[in-house]
Design a protein around this nucleic acid. Sequence first.
DNA 1: GGAAGCTCTCTAGTCTCTAGAGCTTTATAT
DNA 2: ATATAAAGCTCTAGAGACTAGAGAGCTTCC
Lengths: 137, 137
Amino acid sequence: MYTIGDLSRRTGVKIPTIRYYEQMGLLAAPERTEGNQRRYEKRALERLAFVRHARDLGLSIEAIRDLLALSEHPERPCGEADRIATEHLASVREKIAQLRKLEHELKRIVACHGDHTIGDCYVIRALADHSLCGNEH
Amino acid sequence: MYTIGDLSRRTGVKIPTIRYYEQMGLLAAPERTEGNQRRYEKRALERLAFVRHARDLGLSIEAIRDLLALSEHPERPCGEADRIATEHLASVREKIAQLRKLEHELKRIVACHGDHTIGDCYVIRALADHSLCGNEH
DNA sequence: GGAAGCTCTCTAGTCTCTAGAGCTTTATAT
DNA sequence: ATATAAAGCTCTAGAGACTAGAGAGCTTCC
């Protein structure tokens, strides 16, 4: 039996966040003591670890809810779970591509090195004038 | 003179967002008609383009406010503007590195291709068991 | 049995918008 | 000159995923 604080320490998920996950339906409402405090079993710890891991990977609460629902029907085909993960992989790749563009642009922008005054600072000019960009976004 | 709708069309920034930027102090409150509608000058258009561009690059509203404040004192040295952009470049690079890790992990996870049942689906197992990850995060 | 430390609920705040209700103004067409 | 359509106004609330704080009530340990 774990207290909510135990769960928090073991998973690194903050206490209010654990309660929030319960509210969002990612964790089952656990038993309570006579004094109304939550007491968790080991399964809850594993489930929270799952949720945390999935959030770390950037899956939305909704996607996680879907995966959890699926995992409760282990007899069904898992094409759906695969689809969720694949879709997410695509969105991660897109984000990477976008950030790479930004990296290039910022690298070009960071070029005044503090030895000018703002009047001719490239940072300001580049931000003001999109046409200096070289790529569209 | 532009209406708020003109500004929106020309910059691609939605109307409520323009009003929000005004509220946040990124845009000066423009003149109003007798009927209380906003009428903008060309400078406002340029400024909005600056803000939009900076937001596209992922700069926070606060960072943009700082840059704008700086740009109003063109006689000062621009080391500060450079610092803001450089700092942001570092954070973009960090995000890219993180997302790359996620990409690898998801790629490994997406491996069950719908030809199993969920009971032995790698997606679910990998998310449940962090130790399958191969890297820490 | 008393103090320290945990936990409870509830409310409100974060950030950057976005959407809608209900109303007023402006522009265009006749 | 007037009718109507399109655009604008303010204000409120919602999104997503938490986070923080108030004020009260439990548990544990010496």
